[in-house]
Amino acid sequence: MKILAYLKYTLAVFLLCTITSCFEVIEEVNLKNDGSGSMIFTLNMSKSKAKLASIMLLDSVNGFKVPSRKDIQKSLDEIVAELNKAEGITNVKETADYDNFIFSVSCNFKKIDNINSMTDDLWRKQKNKTAVSSYLFDASKGYFKRHYQYDVEAKKQYNKLKSENKKVFDDASYTTIYRFDKEIVSQTNGSSKISKSKKAVMQRVSALDIINGKGNLANTIQLKK
């Protein structure tokens, strides 16, 4: 049955030659007046599903080991386990659609600082000094702040990639959506837009802009008091 294995590899390699790839990340925060809320983080690679399905037929591609479905599930489960351990975080859920390659993790938080503590912990485990991103909500003053600091390391890591691997980021995007109970009076990020109901702010940045430091996710949103 060696011949079937050859056919499988030939098919996968030829598919990799032709199919394009890209992905999108969506970060959503729904914040209530009392500072509690929910957060959903989604990775949608559906547009690349044919390519990913081809890659999954191989052991490694472009020098990277291809994770199996089991590996992916294990990583997701680990994230969920970490979240469950975090203080103030409840109702942690994960979804994994392997047909369309869409993965998401959601949770509720008592206060937005619980998310910061959890991400700080994760960053420390990754041996990074400080998180590049955090949230602040001051209920008394009525503002929500998304702190974001460009990390040059992203560009360094990107530049280390071979040109064929860099292509993955060409059409990739990062979307943030913040929803509030109260109306928004103002926001400071030039590329973000306030919704018609004035209760949500959305920003879509290309992954390349984030890598190159052109895309800024920082924002201060003033809510009606």
């Binding site: 559906s46 599903k49 369309n100 869409i102 959506i177 929803r179």
Partner: peptide
């Protein structure tokens, strides 16, 4: 022609 999943946003970004 291949299908993929995407999102459409309304005026309130839902």
């Amino acid at each position: 022609e291949v299908t993929y999943t995407s999102y459409e946003y309304n005026d309130d970004y839902e």
